[in-house]
Design a protein around this nucleic acid. Sequence first.
DNA 1: CGTGATCCTGACCAAACGGTCAAACCTTTT
DNA 2: AAAAGGTTTGACCGTTTGGTCAGGATCACG
Lengths: 213, 213
Amino acid sequence: MNEAAPRTRIQKRNREIILEAALEVFSAEGFRGATLDRIAEAAGLSKPNLLYYFPSKEAIHVALLAGLMDTWLAPLAGIDPDGDPVEEILAYVRLKLDMARDYPRESRLFAQEIVQGAPRILDQIEGPLKTLVDEKAAVIRAWAEAGRIAPLDPCHLIFSIWATTQHYADFDVQVRGILRPEGETHFDAAHAFLEGLFRRALTPDGPAGAAIR
Amino acid sequence: MNEAAPRTRIQKRNREIILEAALEVFSAEGFRGATLDRIAEAAGLSKPNLLYYFPSKEAIHVALLAGLMDTWLAPLAGIDPDGDPVEEILAYVRLKLDMARDYPRESRLFAQEIVQGAPRILDQIEGPLKTLVDEKAAVIRAWAEAGRIAPLDPCHLIFSIWATTQHYADFDVQVRGILRPEGETHFDAAHAFLEGLFRRALTPDGPAGAAIR
DNA sequence: CGTGATCCTGACCAAACGGTCAAACCTTTT
DNA sequence: AAAAGGTTTGACCGTTTGGTCAGGATCACG
């Protein structure tokens, strides 16, 4: 089985079915907690059939992570150096929170991988991810030095955005447990809160002595 | 084996050794990823001996989580309604970040449990944790309504503090991967950053038209 | 110092697990 | 329509895993 390129439409379809099922199971149970039997069941395929399309359990996991990385990084890549600094960063926050709401399984998959030391994607982190963060951090640093946003460390700012947004996906159970019986609207509240938090933190102080209302 | 009360000093000592080893292994590999053999090895005891002190693998996990919950909640409980609002919250942030630095295994243990749906501590979350959060949220809400801090949703503020601080423990690998080759000082930088972030976000606006420098 | 309670271990077990394989089945191509 | 290539499966295998057990070692105490 050539893993890289599907040759028939059955291959393409079943690959996708398997990855979807694997995402469901891996994100909920972790790599070790997930079993081929449960993935096969979720995919509606037999276990040997799974292993016809992927050489091993680990290969499925790696394929999932690799396929997701780009999608996951896209919002950060979208920060525009020529845009309005505060609005660009707030737009990023909004997009990242939308992803936590719309793709919680992907978020949890990454979270578990990284908590356990990222054994399968460490190179991706130290490679493409670091490169992208370095690039965008430079943009933010320039904004800060120009006084267009408050002087905050860009890397830690990015971390804080990741942390606060992904929290709503990764710690969903805790959030719901504490907010209950507040309904399904807590993502709206989170949007409003994070917008307020980061807008206040980012907006530069006026020139010394200036009146601010 | 009476699980609740150690009757001899050997019992007490070995219980602690086992829990320490279990923390090491569970936090690194997750519940399903950890094996009794690895815990036994880390504890320097035989596997049957482990099961002499705890009736099952799950019992060890539960004992760990239960024993940690109080410690984990202590900093939040320490927020003083009579203190200076901004300083009280900033002190909480500092304490929480210290815990992420000094007790990363505990943080990762909780993180993994909650990511997977908190199957073993859901009642603790919806019970004592929710109660405590509700109590402190009320304090913060009162501060906000009195105009002593900026008007931010207290629950989401607490979430954002948890998220940003625990991020440095739970996603340590990612943080190091991106900050590299920055040395071991990144917790100092994180302290400074979070202090700046939350101070800016929390400090109330001056009265309309007032000069702020 | 001996005796009962506590502590520890090697050998073992059943279930679950990831993975294999030959053979059957289905699709596409000629 | 039949060969060729792609797909699916039941049965099976070796290993790992959580857990048991009978018996031996060690400790506390009268």
